[in-house]
Structure formats: C-alpha cells, structure tokens
C-alpha cells in the first residue's frame, strides 16, 4: 500500500461537486437555527409562561443528545407522524416524497437552534441594562428598544460564537451520510470505493473542509470588523 498523490488531486476535483450539498445543509441549518435560537432565547429571557419551560426543555434535551441521534429520530419518526396525519385528514401527500436531504435540513436546524439559543442569549446579556433603561426613559417601547438598541449590539457581541456555530454545523453536516445524502465526506467514500484509495480521498475531503472553514473565518472577521466598529475606542 503506497500513497498515490495524484489520486488526491483526482479525488479533489470529484469532491468539488458535493460542495453545494454540504453548503446548503450548513446554510439552512444555521439560518433556521438562528431564528429558532433567537425565539427560544427570548422566550426564556422574558420568562413567557409555559413556553419558557418548553424552550428550556428543548435546549437541554437537544444539547444533551448527539446530533446523529437527532437525525435518526427525525428520519424514522417524522414519516410516521406525517403519514399518520395524512391518513387521518385524507391528504394525498406521503412521506416518501420528502427528499432525503429534507430530513437533514429539519433535524440539523433543530440541533443548531438549541446551540444558537445560548449564543443569542449570551449576546443579549452582553448589552448592559442601563442602555435599555435609557431607551425606555426617552419613551421607546420594549420592541423599539430591542430592535434598535439591544439586537444590533447583541449581534456584534455574538458574532465570534456565531462563527463557531457555523463551523460546527459545516463539519456536523457530514453526518447526513446516515440518511444517504452525498455530502463531501460521503462523496469521498464513493470516489474511493472503486480503487480502495480511501486515505487519499479523505485527505482531499479534509483539504476542502479546511478551505471552507478558513473562508468562513475570514468572512466572519470582516463582518466583525464592520459591525463592531463602535467598540474601538481610544479614550476610556
């Protein structure tokens, strides 16, 4: 068994085709997760009756169980629910018409939501209470003070953690192979299955993931610089 450097290159080119799949899973789970996380965080911070308890239970259960388990539970559980409902209400829709990647979207969004609710919460807590009081003291409503004063600063404070979450979801998206979605990693396995050069293929996959991660870090740094410009003070 010898290293075949040229096959790393060959595999690399073939793996590029799977990048859109990986990125779409990452993007969907991060965006939907952010919305879920923001809502969850607000419910908990404002102690909404009943809903706050449900939100807490959601966060502790999801963070307490592996992402792969979420995917498998959704994959096996969701069709049962959908088909049951469809039969009951006489819909023509059946779970077989859900594409495999749909299960990855749904389950990873749920996973990301729980982690991001903590990121959002930390961001909001980073905005000091005095500024909210100042907004109230000039007659702004709660919603106005959240939208104009708290959220922009919470976002700036949460950016480093958000970037971490994006990278986490990028790498986590490889688990989608469990429901037969061909992402970069799964593609590497397929590419190597004809000649057994798995090592070269996975090396190529690693290079692509590394590149994507560096790209995300760069973009995050750029956004951070723009959004956090107000923090670079000279005088105390």
């Amino acid at each position: 068994m010898q290293l075949d450097p040229s096959f790393i290159w060959t595999a690399f080119w073939q793996l590029l085709g799977a990048i859109p799949t990986t990125l779409s899973i990452t993007a969907v789970s991060v965006l939907a997760g952010f919305v879920i996380g923001a809502v969850t965080a607000m419910l908990r911070m404002y102690r909404a009756p009943v809903l706050a308890q449900i939100a807490s239970a959601y966060v502790t259960f999801i963070r307490g169980t592996p992402m792969l388990t979420h995917l498998l539970i959704i994959y096996f559980g969701l069709p049962m629910i959908i088909d049951g409902l469809a039969e009951h209400f006489g819909w023509s829709f059946r779970s077989v018409s859900i594409p495999m990647i749909g299960f990855a979207y749904i389950s990873f969004s749920i996973t990301a939501g729980a982690y991001m609710s903590e990121v959002v919460r930390a961001g909001i807590l980073a905005v000091d209470r005095g500024q909210v009081e100042a907004a109230q003291s000039v007659g702004m409503t709660t919603f106005q003070s959240l939208r104009r004063i708290v959220f922009p600063q919470a976002l700036a404070a949460a950016l480093p953690n958000l970037a971490n979450s994006v990278i986490g979801m990028l790498h986590g998206s490889t688990l989608a192979f469990a429901v037969s979605v061909v992402d970069i990693n799964a593609k590497a396995q397929i590419v190597a299955s004809t000649n057994w050069k798995f090592f070269e293929a996975y090396l190529a996959a690693a290079l692509i993931f590394w590149g994507l991660t560096v790209l995300i870090e760069r973009v995050a740094a750029l956004i951070e610089k723009r959004v956090g410009a107000y923090n670079r003070g000279g005088v105390a």
Binding site: E133, S137, V138
Partner: peptide
C-alpha cells in the same frame, strides 16, 4: 416617559451609535 427625561450616573449612551 415622553414628558420626562433622565440623565444617568453611568451615562448609558447607546454604544453602537
């Protein structure tokens, strides 16, 4: 609140503005 205004000990300026 619209008829009153407050000046705070810790200034409480909006830091992103």
């Amino acid at each position: 609140r619209r008829k009153t205004a407050m000046v705070f000990q810790q200034y409480n300026l909006f830091r992103h503005k």
